[in-house]
Design a protein around this nucleic acid. Structure first.
Lengths: 123, 123
DNA sequence: GTAAGTAGTATACAAAAGGTAAGTAGTTAC
DNA sequence: GTAACTACTTACCTTTTGTATACTACTTAC
C-alpha cells in the first residue's frame, strides 16, 4: 500500500507478520499476572498458597483462573497427590522453558527502565 | 524462606527483583496495543490515520489514548506542523530503540508459538 | 473443641480496559 | 454546497479483570 517513505526496511506483509507474532505472544502471556506466575513457577514455587504468598497482590480467585489458563496453554502441569493431606503441585513444563529469551529481555529492560525512572525522580 | 528444592538459582530477593522488573516492563508496554503501536512507529508510520489503518482493529479513541500514554513514557515525540493542513507526526524516540531485544524475543516466540498451534491443529 | 493450614469455589461488587458511534473543526476536491 | 480527508474528542456501553468476604472440606496442632 503506502510505501512512500524512503527507508522502510520491511514489506507491508513482513511488518504485519511481526505485528501478528507479537500479538499472538501477548495473547497467551500478556496480562498482569501470567508472566509473574511463570517466573514464580520457574523459581520452584509449586503450591497454591505458596504461589499466592510469592506473588504480592494476587487473590485466590485470580490465581486460580490464571493457573487454569496457563495449564490450557501448556505452560504448566497440575499434579494432584491424593495422599492424606491433599497436595496439589503446579509444575512448569518444557514449553515454559521456550520463554527464556522473552523473560530475560523483559526483565533486563524492566530493570533498565526502573533505573531511568529513579534517575528522573532525582532531578 | 522455603528453599527446600535442590536447585534454586536465585535468592528470594533476586527472584522478587526479577518479578518486579517484569512487572515494571509490563506496566508501561503491556496491554493490547502499546507494542503494536511501537512496531508501527518503528516501521515509519507516523501519522494518526496512517497508524489507524496500519493497526487493524484499533479505534480512534483508543489510538489517541495510547499515543498520549506512549508520549508521557518517552516512547514517542508528537510533532505538530501548523501549516495550512495541520499535520501531526508521531515519531519514535531513541528510548524506543531500547526495546529492540524485547520486541525481537516476543516476535520470535510468537512465531514459534503460532507454528506450534498450527501443528496441533493438524493432528 | 478451637484455631490454623491445605486448596480451592461462590458470590457480589468495583474498577479498569476496551469498543461503538457520533460529533467537532478545519481543509481540500469537485 | 457536498463529500471526503485531517486529527481528534465526547458520551455511552460492554467486557475483562480484580477485590472482598465468606464458605467447603479435610488435616493437624493444642
Amino acid at each position: 500500500m503506502e510505501t512512500y517513505l524512503e527507508l522502510e526496511p520491511l514489506t507491508t506483509s513482513q511488518c504485519n507478520n511481526k505485528l501478528n507474532a507479537v500479538g499472538d505472544a501477548l495473547y497467551v502471556i500478556g496480562g498482569k499476572w501470567k508472566l509473574r506466575i511463570i517466573i514464580a513457577l520457574k523459581e520452584g514455587h509449586s503450591r497454591f498458597n505458596e504461589l499466592q504468598r510469592t506473588i504480592p497482590g494476587i487473590s485466590a480467585k485470580v490465581l486460580s483462573q490464571e493457573l487454569k489458563d496457563l495449564e490450557l496453554n501448556g505452560f504448566l502441569e497440575r499434579r494432584v497427590h491424593a495422599d492424606t493431606p491433599v497436595v496439589v503441585e503446579y509444575l512448569p513444563t518444557a514449553y515454559t522453558a521456550t520463554l527464556k529469551n522473552v523473560l530475560e529481555a523483559l526483565s533486563e529492560w524492566g530493570e533498565m527502565h526502573r533505573q531511568k525512572l529513579r534517575e528522573e525522580g532525582n532531578k
